[in-house]
């Protein structure tokens, strides 16, 4: 289990993060979200024991990262925003070096390297020089080095940055495969990524925690999200009927079919159905709006971080 309490980091006068607190349970996959400059990388570097906080505590499996950095570092695998690779080594040599650095006995190192290569799909490039690898492979070697010593806790800073869609899918499957055996904290800009792989979200803005919880939970608490409706009937009538539920916008008009988007929690779908039927319109389709996470994220981060306090629970 990972506990973060009152974590604050100043760079000179500037506070990169302020009073951050959250808890991660064993086996969870947590998505760490924030705009550029929100303090994501700083937080992850502190959790990765690369950086020391100005104040606050990080406790991993009962070990304090400041007092017992050795014990903590044995339990973590960290992929920084740029994978820390030595270009002149081969993939196999590099991973064996990292394994031994993280206290895997020399006799076991090779087996662990093969295991990590298996997980990250690197077997065919075991003997290749890292300098000759493509960006996607380099990123995968970065993930492999983070898990070669079987850490309990994996910290991945933007593992999918710069990957193509096929590689992103590969990375997503890789992270999903780690669920249960590893506790994973992954930051990303690509929201559908996070939405599909993570159990819970931690959202920071301006160096402060603005929300945490499962996506559903956040959507419910914020009353966020949207509902998509397709009806047949008069436009004015439809808009008037639905505006009782929430702000309505017309997505498309095609023949007699009207696509509408209601800015309201997906929980309110029954009310939409009632309103449509009550107005004498034909209901063709009713669904929760796509990219829910995006609307949650934007709402939290564009409001200047002034989220309602109950969201923070």
């Amino acid at each position: 289990m990972i506990q973060v309490e009152g974590l604050t980091k100043y760079y000179g006068e500037h506070a990169a993060i302020r009073d951050l607190a959250f808890t991660i349970n064993k086996g969870e996959v947590i998505g760490f979200l924030g705009l550029n400059g929100a303090g994501k990388s700083t937080t992850l570097k502190i959790l990765g024991c690369v950086l020391l906080p100005t104040s606050g505590r990080v406790v991993i499996d009962g070990y304090d990262a400041l007092r017992d950095p050795h014990e903590v570092r044995k339990r973590i695998g960290f992929l920084p925003d740029t994978p820390p690779l030595y270009d002149e080594m081969t993939v196999g040599e590099y991973l064996a070096f990292v394994a031994q650095l993280r206290e895997v006995p020399a006799s076991e190192a090779r087996a662990r390297v093969l295991e990590a290569e298996e997980k990250t799909g690197l077997r065919e490039v075991d003997g290749a020089l890292i300098s000759t690898l493509s960006h996607g492979y380099r990123q995968r070697v970065g993930v492999a080095q983070a898990l070669v010593h079987r850490p309990a806790f994996l910290i991945l800073d933007e593992p999918t940055s710069g990957l193509d869609p096929a590689q992103i899918r590969g990375m997503r499957e890789l992270i999903r495969g780690l669920k249960g055996t590893h506790t994973v904290l992954v930051s990303s800009h690509i929201l559908p990524e996070i939405s599909e792989t993570c159990d819970r979200l931690v959202i920071i803005h301006g160096g402060q925690l603005v929300a945490q919880g499962a996506e559903e939970e956040l959507a419910r608490k914020l009353g966020g999200g949207s509902i998509e409706v397709e009806v047949r009937g008069e436009k004015e009538k439809a808009v008037a009927a639905l505006s009782g539920v929430g702000p309505v916008s017309v997505a498309f008009e095609d023949g007699g079919v009207l696509g509408l988007r209601v800015e309201a929690s997906p929980e309110l779908r029954p009310r939409v159905a009632q309103a449509v039927v009550g107005a004498g319109l034909e209901l063709l389709r009713l669904d929760r709006g796509a990219q829910r996470l995006e609307s949650i994220f934007l709402r939290l981060t564009q409001a200047g971080g002034s989220a309602s306090p109950e969201v923070l629970s």
Binding site: V50, P69, K74, I76, P84, V98, L101, R102, Q145
Partner: peptide
């Protein structure tokens, strides 16, 4: 320069 220092920093040494 290469960013590999964080590998050493995050390792138990």
């Amino acid at each position: 320069q290469a960013g590999t220092l964080s590998l050493l920093y995050s390792s138990p040494l």
